[in-house]
Simulated assay, not measured.
Amino acid sequence: MTNTQLQPRLESARAARPLPQTAGASPLPLPASAVDQLVSAALAEDAPWGDLTSHALIPGEATATAFLTAREEGIFCGEQVIEAAFRLAGPGTAVIPLVRDGERFDAGGILAEISGPARTILTAERVALNLVQRLSGIATLTARFVAETDGTAARITDTRKTTPGLRALERYAVRCGGGFNHRHSLSDAVMAKDNHLAVLAAAGLDLATALRTARDKLSHTVHFEVEVDSLDQIEPVLAGGADTVLLDNFSVGDLYRAVELVAGRALTEASGNVRLDTVAGIAATGVDIISAGALTHSVRALDLGLDISTSLSAQ
Rank of each mutant, 00 (worst) to 15 (best):
A13T: 10
F224N: 02
R134G: 03
L52N: 03
L52H: 07
E79G: 13
D150T: 15
F145E: 01
I290T: 00
S291D: 05
P164L: 08
M1P: 11
A294H: 07
G293R: 06
G178F: 01
L261Q: 13
G116A: 10
V228I: 12
A147E: 11
R14N: 08
L197N: 06
V237P: 01
A85R: 06
S185W: 08
G78Y: 09
D243P: 01
E125C: 06
I96P: 00
T123P: 05
A198N: 13
Q315C: 04
A270S: 12
L238M: 09
A192L: 15
G204E: 00
I156D: 00
M191L: 15
V299S: 02
G177C: 01
L169W: 02
F105I: 06
G102Y: 07
T2N: 14
L111H: 09
N273W: 04
R119V: 13
F180I: 01
G165V: 07
V299D: 00
T149F: 02
I96D: 15
E72M: 00
G179H: 01
V35E: 01
P117M: 07
V299R: 00
N130R: 09
T53I: 03
D46N: 10
E61N: 14
D150P: 02
V226K: 01
L200D: 01
R275Y: 09
L231Q: 11
E83H: 12
D288E: 04
D150Y: 09
D288T: 05
F180S: 11
A208W: 02
T22Y: 09
A89C: 11
A301I: 03
R9H: 14
E103I: 05
D303R: 04
R257V: 03
A47C: 12
A41C: 10
Q37Y: 07
K161G: 03
A263M: 07
I82H: 07
L261V: 12
I138A: 04
T278I: 04
G50A: 07
R155T: 02
G151C: 09
G78A: 11
N195D: 14
E79S: 14
L68E: 03
L169G: 05
V39G: 04
T149E: 04
L238I: 10
T162R: 02
G109V: 06
L186S: 11
V245K: 03
M1R: 08
T152C: 09
F67V: 10
Q315S: 09
A34P: 05
G179V: 01
G272M: 03
N130T: 07
L10N: 09
A168M: 15
T209Q: 12
D303C: 03
A44M: 09
P27C: 10
I308K: 03
A23H: 04
I110C: 15
A201Q: 13
R167M: 08
S185A: 15
R87M: 14
E61A: 15
V199C: 07
A258V: 06
T221Q: 09
